[in-house]
Write a protein that binds this DNA or RNA. Structure first.
Length: 403
DNA sequence: TCTGGGGTCCTAGGACCC
DNA sequence: TCTGGGGTCCTAGGACCC
């Protein structure tokens, strides 16, 4: 049976939510109506545009570009900092509203949801429901969304990306040729900055060109990805709306450093802070991991990752830190300027089926107790409430506002 | 005043085993 | 003295998403 799918996408989510919050706090300008962006901190080298208003977009400002570019394009631009705590609240309120319409909701990201309406229409028309949802969000939550209406997730997602803001777009099978095929191939989901130029070289410029290309030639050239892009261009997608939240497969934290670091000891200190963050989040998820990976980015933007499979699982701060440290020693040469350090724990499983290390010792048990005690304090008084003395300067360099 | 942070999935190549 | 091939596990690297 044909599926009935909606894709709900918040217009300029971070900027809109910041705007609504400011209005709620008594501010009298709506930053959606002026050239404005949400951006990081330039002095900390995290100065990129995270979201923009329509007026900022008109100036040619693009998401992801450096703030200093934005300032050149629009000298009067107003810049606001992000606040993930608030964004999560708005995201939750959206989810709650959507829950009135179906149980099958996939939270695809903080500002996007897929709804499987197949058995929830009760005789109503899918398009009417989409329009009602759109109106209710605007009225009750004070921000706007785009909604894509289709018979699969891919087409619903493509549709919600058509003209913005505050629109409902329909993309049924019979609309593919007229509405999707004329678009540049770069607009197709899963085609990014590396693949698009290759397609251009093959004279494939529009989604229609791609759809009409030879499937086997694409497979030969791009492997599995080639098949996917051909299917997507033809509107083919049988993936399900994943409405039961999935367990994470890895947990990572990374930090761009305000200045380049060239000393192993400094990098170790940063890894300690990252180990605390990552394992804190692991324990919150009640997950343990079997692989530890350290990522370094040089000032020339060259990334290297070094990882190790442990043969046991862990969520323990000092254990992860010790492994991270030894990985660092294996691949970092003192003196190379480093601008970003990352730490990832992967191959996660649920804690109750934790594989115990053969060497589970008195010492490990004590470390576990320590983690638990510190977690309790952080959960009660905030992540920042307790910190090792040695880390005070490091913490200033690394953001923790998402924890 | 260059370029965030957090994820997932795929592929290539080497090691090792039979 | 020279030479297999299949399977699995592991690491590194890269592409994509929001």
């Amino acid at each position: 049976m044909e599926k009935q799918i909606l894709h709900v996408d918040v217009n300029n989510a971070f900027l809109s939510w910041t705007a609504v919050e400011m209005l709620k706090k008594g501010n009298n300008i709506d930053i959606r109506d002026i050239p404005a962006i949400i951006g990081g901190d330039e002095t900390k080298r995290s100065g990129i545009v995270l979201a923009k208003s329509m007026k900022a977009k008109e100036c040619g400002i693009r998401t992801g570009e450096p703030i200093y570019h934005a300032k050149i394009k629009c000298p009067s631009i107003r810049i606001f900092t992000s606040n993930y705590k608030i964004y999560r609240q708005y995201s939750d309120s959206l989810y709650k509203l959507l829950s009135n319409y179906t149980d099958k909701i996939e939270r695809y990201s903080i500002d996007e949801c897929f709804l499987d309406m197949t058995n929830y229409l009760c005789g109503r028309n899918l398009i009417d429901v989409a329009k009602e949802i759109s109106v209710r969000i605007k009225k009750e939550l004070k921000f706007t969304v785009n909604i894509g209406v289709a018979h699969n997730k891919l087409l619903a997602k493509m549709a919600s990306d058509f003209q913005k803001p505050d629109k409902v777009h329909i993309l049924y099978e019979e609309d593919i040729i007229s509405k999707m095929w004329p678009l540049p191939v770069s607009e197709l989901f899963m085609l990014g900055r590396k693949t698009v130029p290759k397609l251009y070289n093959m004279r494939i410029k529009t989604i229609g060109d791609l759809a009409k290309s030879d499937k086997f030639m694409l497979i030969k050239k791009f492997g599995k990805h080639g098949l996917k892009m051909w299917e997507y261009a033809n509107g083919i997608d049988d993936s399900e709306v994943i409405y039961q939240p999935e367990k994470p497969k890895s947990v990572s934290n990374e930090a761009t450093l305000p200045i380049n670091v060239i000393k192993t000891e400094k990098l170790e200190e940063i890894l300690l802070t990252l180990s605390e963050q990552v394992t804190f989040r692991l324990r919150k998820h009640k997950m343990v991991g079997e692989v530890v990976a350290v990522q370094l980015r040089t000032d020339e933007f060259k990334d290297t990752i070094h990882q190790r499979k442990l043969g046991f699982t862990t969520d323990n701060t000092s254990q992860v830190y010790e492994i991270a440290k030894s990985l660092l020693h294996e691949f970092y040469k003192d003196g190379t300027p480093i601008r970003l350090v990352g730490l990832r724990v992967g191959n996660l499983t649920e804690k109750d089926q934790e594989q115990l290390s053969f060497f589970t010792s008195e010492k490990n048990n004590k470390q576990k107790e320590l983690d638990k005690t510190l977690d309790n304090i952080k959960n009660k008084y905030g992540y920042q409430s307790i910190t090792r003395a040695s880390e005070i300067n490091i913490k200033k360099m690394i953001k923790t506002d998402k924890l």
